[in-house]
C-alpha cells in the first residue's frame, strides 16, 4: 500500500472521528468541545438530547445517587403484536441494548446539602414512552419522597403513552397523578423539568403540573402532534409553536434554563423551601 492511499483513507476517517455536527444549525464542533459543552451547540445553543445517566450526572452530586426500582421491567399485558412483531421481544431487546429496565430511572441523590428524589426519563427507551413499568417506578419514587419528606424532581423526555400496552398505559397517567396528589397533600415540593420532547400523555399528566415547571431552551412541549393539528385546523402553525419559549409566553412554563445552569438553578430554587 502506497503512502498516498493511506493518507487518503485517514483524511476520510478524520471528520467522522472528531467532529460533531449540530443537528439544528449543522455547524461542525469538535467532539471534545461538544461533550465539554454538555451536548449544547456553542453556536446556536441547540440543546441536544441527554440520556438518563448523562442527566443524572449533570444534576446530582457525584457518588450520591442511589437508584431504586430497577427490578421493574416491561411485561406485555395485551400480548401486543404489530407489523414488526411481538412487543415483548422489542421490549426485551431494548432492555438489554440500553442496560436500563424501563423508560425512566428513579432514585435519590444530593444537590449540595439537599437530598431529593429524582425520576429521569430516557427518550432512547421506546421514545421515552409511558407504560406500566414507567408509571409504577414514578409512583414508587413519589411514595419514597413522601416517606422521607423529600422534594420530588421529575425530568420528562417522552413522546407519550406506550401504545403497545393500550389502556393500561393510558391509566399510568392517572396513577402517577394520583401519587402526585398525595405528594401535594403532604406539602412536598414537586419540580418538573421538561426536556426535548415532552408530548402526548406525559405532557397531559405529570409533566405540566409541577409546583414549578422548568424547561430547557427550544424543548418541544405539547399535547397533540403538529401534523395532527395542521390537518385538523387546515392551517400552518407558527415556527415557534409548542416550544418551551411558546409555553413560557402562554404561562405554562415558569422558567427556561440553560443546561449549564440547570443544577445551580434547581439548587437555588429548592433553597426556598422552609424547613418545617
Amino acid at each position: 500500500m502506497g503512502w498516498f492511499t493511506k493518507s487518503d483513507e485517514s483524511r476520510h476517517a478524520l471528520p467522522e472521528d472528531i467532529w460533531q455536527v449540530c443537528p439544528a444549525c449543522k455547524v461542525h464542533v469538535l467532539k471534545d468541545e461538544w461533550a465539554r459543552n454538555l451536548k449544547v451547540c456553542p453556536k446556536c445553543n441547540h440543546h441536544d438530547r441527554l440520556d438518563c445517566r448523562e442527566r443524572i450526572n449533570l444534576l446530582i452530586d457525584a457518588g450520591t445517587f442511589r437508584e431504586f426500582g430497577q427490578e421493574i421491567v416491561p411485561s406485555d399485558p395485551l400480548n401486543f403484536q404489530d407489523a414488526k412483531g411481538p412487543y415483548a421481544e422489542k421490549a426485551k431487546a431494548t432492555v438489554s441494548k440500553l442496560g436500563m429496565s424501563e423508560s425512566v430511572v428513579t432514585g435519590s441523590g444530593n444537590i449540595g446539602q439537599v437530598r431529593l428524589v429524582i425520576a429521569v426519563m430516557d427518550f432512547r427507551f421506546l421514545g421515552g414512552s409511558l407504560a406500566s413499568g414507567t408509571g409504577e417506578k414514578i409512583r414508587l419514587a413519589i411514595e419514597h419522597a413522601i416517606r422521607f419528606r423529600r422534594a420530588f424532581v421529575m425530568v420528562s423526555a417522552s413522546g407519550g403513552a406506550r401504545m403497545h400496552e393500550g389502556v393500561v398505559s393510558l391509566m399510568q397517567m392517572a396513577k402517577t397523578c394520583a401519587a402526585l396528589s398525595k405528594l401535594q397533600k403532604a406539602g412536598l415540593p414537586y419540580i418538573s423539568i421538561l426536556t426535548d420532547p415532552t408530548t402526548g400523555g406525559v405532557s397531559a399528566s405529570f409533566a405540566m403540573i409541577g409546583d414549578v415547571n422548568i424547561a430547557e431552551p427550544g424543548t418541544l412541549i405539547g399535547f397533540a402532534g403538529r401534523r395532527v393539528i395542521e390537518q385538523t385546523i387546515k392551517q400552518k402553525l407558527p415556527k415557534d409553536f409548542q416550544t418551551a419559549e411558546y409555553l413560557e409566553a402562554h404561562g405554562f412554563v415558569d422558567h427556561i434554563v440553560n443546561r449549564s445552569e440547570m443544577k445551580a438553578f434547581l439548587s437555588n430554587l429548592l433553597s426556598y423551601r422552609q424547613s418545617k
Binding site: C177, G225, Q235
Partner: peptide, 26 residues
C-alpha cells in the same frame, strides 16, 4: 379525544387534563 387545535395548545390542553387527573384522585 381532546381537541387538537392551536388555541387548545395555547391555552394549555395538556395542563388542563393533567390537573384534572391529579385533582380527581383527591
Amino acid at each position: 379525544g381532546a381537541f387538537p387545535g392551536m388555541e387548545a395548545e395555547a391555552r394549555g390542553q395538556a395542563e388542563a387534563i393533567g390537573r384534572n387527573l391529579m385533582e380527581m384522585a383527591a
